[in-house]
Design a protein around this nucleic acid. Structure first.
Lengths: 199, 199
DNA sequence: CACTGTATAGAACGATCGTTCGTTAATGTC
DNA sequence: GACATTAACGAACGATCGTTCTATACAGTG
């Protein structure tokens, strides 16, 4: 890795955790330069525009998500076990990765859902991909016979996303110590209602 | 209503719908002055600080929410019917009120959950009050015997909030035409799982 | 009509924003 | 060691930010 790539990554590291706290749209070149002990222009040269920097942060987030949430879950056998692993990792990934202020993309979704442009499209792409990943994991649990054949997998993924969002809100805004437990209760109810009948 | 109060309300109207699109933290005195055909200083005098303006927008939002969502639901008989009315009104209130860019407070929750201060506290207070309102409506449905006595009413409200959030995301970010339907499916499942047994 | 307080305007402040430019320092190649 | 390339800097740009101050217009009251 050349020197340029190295500092670029260092900038992204800082931008990533900074954006976690103040949002992707709250990022500023000046503040970021100060935090990385660089000049504004020196930092700027690595990206060419602020929007490109913001996009880089969003892509960085996707990558870390895949490594922290999805990849470890592959160790579990496909089906309900893997689905559960994804959900558990997902709920906790903001702690595992350096995300003091919560998921960057999730926050960005609320920031940019009104403002057309490249950032909105990147967020949309990323979250749609996540929905698809969730739906695939649910579909596998149908194939293994753990969930019923008539399970609405998109509905399942939809509700999972809802559980995630409200859990984050509970943790971050309300400091609710029960948020994690409630999330699992909701997940279990979701699974139970779609579980194949065994007796 | 004096002249001052009148223009203050006009400013708030504009700020309200503007904040809906660009967020409460994205509000700027200059842009707002331009939109209301006022000078920056003239507008500024009505609030004394930007933060006070933002707080006023949040309070305005609470008030409109109560009028658009909660009050009409009081026409329904207490219990499940009223709860359902609240949920339906809630899911649609951004259309009824002038909220082209979605619920202001919900967006603000994501913006400020990391940054301590008066704004965060106002958001927190507002959303906690909503949770309590939801929980009360659920409790009434327990009293009427429509829901089981062992219903976890806070868990119920928790999951309702999740349904709301993911529905907004589906509508606003994904332009998902199924979001409303999925929300009601999720709600019905929530009710069914807590319904009292009738046979 | 004069008087009083409120409501708005205009100009300016220092700060920060994203961006551009020209130059220097560091790195890699022959 | 000379050269080419890349990386980083420092200064400045015009724009906008929230805020302050002073002055002018307006409203209501006697």
């Amino acid at each position: 890795m050349g020197k340029g790539e190295e500092t670029r990554q260092a900038i992204l590291d800082e931008a990533f955790s900074l954006a976690s706290c103040i949002g992707v749209s709250g990022l500023s070149i000046g503040v970021l330069a100060e935090r990385t002990h660089m000049s504004k222009s020196g930092l700027f040269a690595h990206f060419g525009s602020k929007e490109e920097l913001q996009l880089a942060v969003l892509r960085e987030s996707q990558q870390r998500f895949a490594e922290a949430v999805l990849r470890p879950a592959l160790r579990e056998p496909r089906g309900l076990a893997r689905l559960r692993a994804i959900v558990v990792n997902w709920l906790n990934w903001t702690r595992a990765v350096n995300l003091p202020g919560g998921c960057v993309i999730n926050a960005a979704a609320a920031e940019f859902d009104d403002q057309p442009g490249a950032l909105r499209e990147e967020v949309k792409k990323s979250l749609l991909a996540l929905r698809r990943t969730l739906a695939d994991a649910v579909a596998k649990a149908v194939e293994t016979g753990e969930l019923r054949r008539d399970t609405d997998i998109d509905q399942f993924a939809f509700e999972l996303a809802g559980i995630y969002q409200v859990t984050q809100q509970g943790r971050r805004l309300f400091n609710d110590p029960d948020a994690d437990r409630r999330a699992l209760v909701a997940f279990d109810r979701l699974v139970r209602d779609n579980a194949a009948i065994h007796e």
